[in-house]
Design a protein around this nucleic acid. Structure first.
Lengths: 171, 171
DNA sequence: AGTCGAGAGTTCAAATTTGAACTACTTGCC
DNA sequence: GGCAAGTAGTTCAAATTTGAACTCTCGACT
């Protein structure tokens, strides 16, 4: 009896109005490995970043997104979107980063309600220091484990999945 | 200038002793889509499960793993491993589930230190109710978005990634 | 037997995350 | 102009997560 993660082990003929389409072995394996890899990877990156730079993965990603943005700054909402996190969660983390001197807040000229999070020089510098180690680990644990083709499929497939999810959310 | 998530936007010729191998566009895309899809998916599943069954994704997975285990029971440590979570985190969640009457604790006969988490009838029942909706959503958002080949690659590739991570952790 | 390092779970305090409520501002439209 | 509906961010309380410290037990070895 296959050990599944999304269904009780042996779907009995019972309970729900329409018999759902359970996941077959391959589908189950894909889903399982996705969840597991994601969790394991997160734990590892979290640990490494905290040890090497004192940043959480979330904080690191905030810096990255800001550094990639036009003036090293992004509106809070836009940033929250890119990070896929809650607005309140972002408010919290930006405050933390502000205390650390890595990020600043400026108010938006065109919209009084708006707030820009902005990378400080110190933030840029810390990111510069933190990036190599982080990238190296991502490479070691994920990128270099997969072939070029596998990477392409990952990018493609999960890109579609993300796109679909973003659409749904926008409803 | 490519927007990367693991490196500052334009890797300047600076800072670290050995110039790291940055991620090229494809690699970056793969990594980005993985992280994003994972976050989006988690948020969605979390929401759905909570609404439909009052369970968090973590709690749901605990029930699943237990239901798939020999006597509907697993040692705490083993369960924590499967879930990829901290021991203390598991202690907390098992206590929650216990309060809800979905899981029980039995002590291990052969090892006084050991504790089994065990699915109750009520737990089995709730899982039976929760599973169809959850599976349907996983299918809709991930499985059915990908082709059979893409799924195979996912399972394979991420399986390897997980295996590697598990090995490393065991060091 | 006696001891010492490792393992199993729990407890604890601190950090994080989240949704809901709230404030203040914008916008589209009469 | 003036309003209703929607937006941007923050605040707040509650739930969760984590690592470190701690307790107790196992096991191997002397």
């Amino acid at each position: 009896m296959p050990s599944t993660s999304s269904a009780p082990s042996a779907p009995p003929s019972a309970a729900s109005p329409y018999e759902p389409r359970w996941l077959d072995e391959e589908e189950m394996a894909a889903w399982r490995s996705f969840v597991t890899a994601s969790n394991l990877l997160n734990r590892r990156l979290e640990r490494q970043l905290k040890e090497d730079s004192g940043l959480s993965h979330t904080q690191y990603e905030i810096l990255v997104h800001l550094s990639a943005a036009p003036a090293g700054s992004l509106r809070m909402t836009e940033l929250a979107d890119k990070l896929v996190t809650s607005k309140s969660g972002l408010t919290y983390q930006v405050t933390q980063l502000e205390k650390m001197g890595l990020v600043g807040r400026r108010s938006c000229p065109s919209d009084v309600r708006g707030v820009f999070a902005e990378l400080t020089d110190q933030g840029r510098e810390l990111l510069r220091e933190a990036a190599p180690g982080h990238v190296a680990l991502v490479r070691e644990l994920l990128i270099d484990v997969l072939s070029r083709e596998q990477l392409a499929v990952l990018a493609d497939g999960l890109g579609q999945v993300s796109a679909r999810l973003r659409l749904d959310d926008a409803l």
